[in-house]
Amino acid sequence: MKRLFSIILLLAVIFVLSATNPDRSEYIEWINHKTMDQSSNLLQKGILSLAGKSIFDAGTTKKDYFLFSIYKTDFSDVGRGKVTTIGVFNQFIPLTSNEK
């Protein structure tokens, strides 16, 4: 009985993780807003509001592991280096940042 409960719990966790694995468009939206919030330059904010999503979409790679995703974004075009982020539970957690 204890083993059956453990298996059901494991399946429930796997289902929740797979159902809350955010997709690429959510990541692009999140990273664009995060970068705009960190920017203090009005010109840079304007450029990011107009073309940020296409810049980040072109510079982002995604590895989908079904339960979570790892995103690597190259911010070299906007002078911020490279960022690696994990997407899990509909959240994005920066793992590494090589900001210039």
Rank of each mutant, 00 (worst) to 15 (best):
Y27H: 07
T73N: 03
S54W: 04
S49R: 05
G81L: 04
S25P: 04
A12T: 10
R24P: 05
V88L: 12
F56C: 01
E99V: 04
V83M: 15
N32A: 13
K63P: 09
F56A: 01
S54V: 03
S97F: 09
I7M: 08
K72L: 14
I70G: 06
T85M: 12
A51S: 06
T60P: 05
R3F: 14
A58K: 15
N98D: 15
A58T: 08
K62G: 02
E26Y: 03
G79H: 07
F15G: 03
F56N: 01
V83T: 09
V88I: 13
K82P: 10
S69L: 11
G87V: 11
I8F: 11
T20F: 12
I7G: 03
A51I: 03
T85V: 15
L11S: 06
F56M: 06
Y71V: 12
P94V: 07
E26Q: 05
T84Y: 12
S39C: 14
I14T: 07
R24S: 04
S54I: 05
T84R: 13
Y27M: 07
I28P: 07
L50A: 12
Y71D: 11
N90E: 11
K45E: 00
D64N: 15
T61W: 13
K100I: 01
M36H: 00
K62I: 07
F66S: 13
D77F: 11
T85N: 12
D37S: 05
Y71T: 09
L67V: 06
S40P: 04
N32L: 04
N98R: 08
